[in-house]
């Protein structure tokens, strides 16, 4: 009985995380703020759902599998968010007027200045290697 209540709260909470992400994706103005909203169901929502599963089944052998599942998501989602954010920054899919601070801007400017071969080469290597200054 108590378990049912806990499972219900966890399930509805996890579903509300997904709803928050959906609303955020529709309402937020640019890519970076949408990325902020999109991470909610990926990490916290999944955690709530997996906890609901663990409470529902009440079996210890299940726990390592769920932990593995969550750790995997925890390792992969920052990497993909970083890749998407970096690509978004480079292709200027962000609204500068909404930013309060852009620390990367100084770094990019300094790297472009310090490069002896000039900005042309920096641009070329950046496009080629996908790494580089930013």
């Amino acid at each position: 009985m108590v378990n049912d209540v806990i499972v219900s709260v966890l399930l509805v909470g996890g579903a509300l995380m997904s709803l928050a992400a959906g609303i955020g994706l529709v309402r937020f103005p640019d890519l970076l703020s949408r990325m902020h909203a999109a991470t909610k169901p990926q990490v916290l929502g999944l955690l709530l759902f997996l906890l609901a599963l663990a409470v529902e089944f009440e079996s210890w052998p299940l726990v390592p599998v769920l932990v593995l599942c969550w750790i995997f998501q925890l390792l992969t989602s920052p990497v993909s968010a970083h890749m998407v954010g970096r690509a978004g920054y480079r292709t200027r899919h962000l609204r500068r007027d909404l930013l309060t601070l852009d620390e990367l801007d100084d770094v990019v400017a300094r790297a472009a200045e310090g490069d002896p071969a000039g900005p042309d080469r920096t641009e070329a290597t950046r496009r080629e290697a996908g790494g580089g200054t930013a």
Binding site: L11, L25, L31, P41, L46, F49, A52, L53, G88
Partner: peptide, 26 residues
Amino acid sequence: PSILDRVLALDVVLAVVGAGLVLNMV
């Protein structure tokens, strides 16, 4: 507007699909 927005949205769709799978198991 951009392909990155679409990728982000489809990531959320995948997260919701995973949530649906857990719901189905429960």
